[in-house]
Design a binder for these strands. Structure first.
Lengths: 209, 209
DNA sequence: CGCATCTTTGATCTGACTCAAACGCCGTGG
DNA sequence: CCACGGCGTTTGAGTCAGATCAAAGATGCG
């Protein structure tokens, strides 16, 4: 019995670019991310890439897997990742997971926000929105220090999440930096004025992150 | 007891532009759509609009509502809508609903597809993708007749779903018509060659709709 | 030190947007 | 029956945000 418990919830590690799941896999476990970042994405036949979700410390990767038999998009680590495996074969470890369905709801809500961003927002608005969201998630995970947090994404990653090109992300970030609404160097994000960045993000007054 | 049952699942009707739910509502019922189309959308402060989901006959509106206490986006009827109300207060009507979690999974999967579309696809690809998806959904609902089906969206609706402008949708549809890959007049869609349209949609060989 | 990855810069191009107006369709009311 | 107004579609001309192509600096790691 003890070995059972150990097998159904244990520590795993991933290196950057390593797959947590491949396309068309039948995931038999969820990952509770303790440290590091990962993303889910899709590749078009000609190489265009779109990141469809980011997983941060504290996130469950991925809540959807408990509903669908197969996952349709690969998930890869962006940094070194340390996580605990929650076996799906033994469903009790899932059901017992605190706030499970609210995590699912949150992640779907975020997808909806991204949809609006990609469909209708400008480059500045998309970047403001994304960085605000990531900062807020890091803050909730207890990983923000004052107005700053780690942000281990390359500009190419940011481009693939926001539906822009890396070149344009670079230029847009520069102009935002020069306006003083954010600082971002060597994988650290600092937001001097949350409110100012919020205004740039074209969020409704009621929209949470 | 009989009156209880009647109250927890009954017929409702909506007219075009009428709200099925408003923003920040606490939905206390799901709608099983029998006839007509509806959509969920979001309005930015300056009037830009993005449709984040379309509900067709046979769809449940909205599976998410059983997970989250409040809904963050309004849902409105696009045509006359006839639906049955599944009370959320009496959860038994939900749990008993056949394939409930698979419907939720489907709708999230679709959101992911839209995300890729809005983030990385051209106008032609987005339109091909959307029309293909809608045709396929109508077909599964038993509402396609050969290679055609009803499509009661205005070009403005299509624009708000694909993240384009109505003018550009108009011009792009014209060029697609002239190439013979689709016919679309007076709310009817005909797809002479599914395969040809699929190629235009930049889908991977494994992507379902 | 050397190679790979990431960031930055410059020049040019284009898909999609904007603005504006005309046209068609249809239901309504005189 | 027709005039009217509202909505959706179509067309044209001009503009712009963001893409593309190319190359030069940084940065970092084995």
């Amino acid at each position: 019995m003890l070995s059972q418990i150990a097998a159904s919830e244990d520590l795993v590690f991933f290196r950057p670019h390593q797959f947590l799941t491949r396309e068309h896999d039948r995931p038999e476990a969820l990952y509770d991310i303790l440290e590091g970042w990962a993303c889910r994405h899709r590749l078009l036949p000609d190489g265009r890439r779109q990141i469809t979700a980011l997983y941060l410390p504290g996130d469950l990767c991925d809540p959807m897997w408990s509903l669908a038999p197969t996952c349709h998009e690969p998930v890869i680590a962006l940094t070194n990742v340390r996580a605990t495996r929650k076996s799906l074969v033994d469903p009790s470890t899932i059901d017992r997971h605190k706030g499970f369905s609210s995590r699912l709801a949150e992640s779907v809500e975020r997808q909806s926000n991204w949809l609006v961003s990609l469909g209708r927002k400008t480059a500045v608005e998309r970047l403001a929105h994304l960085l605000l969201e990531l900062f807020e998630r890091m803050r909730r995970a207890g990983l923000a220090y004052g107005q700053q947090c780690a942000l281990p994404l390359t500009q190419t990653d940011i481009a693939d999440a926001t539906g822009l090109t890396a070149v344009h992300v670079n230029r847009t970030l520069q102009s935002m930096r020069s306006k003083g609404v954010l600082e971002l160097h060597s994988k650290w994000l600092r937001i001097p004025d949350l409110g100012a960045l919020r205004d740039l993000a074209a969020l409704g007054p009621h929209d949470a992150l």
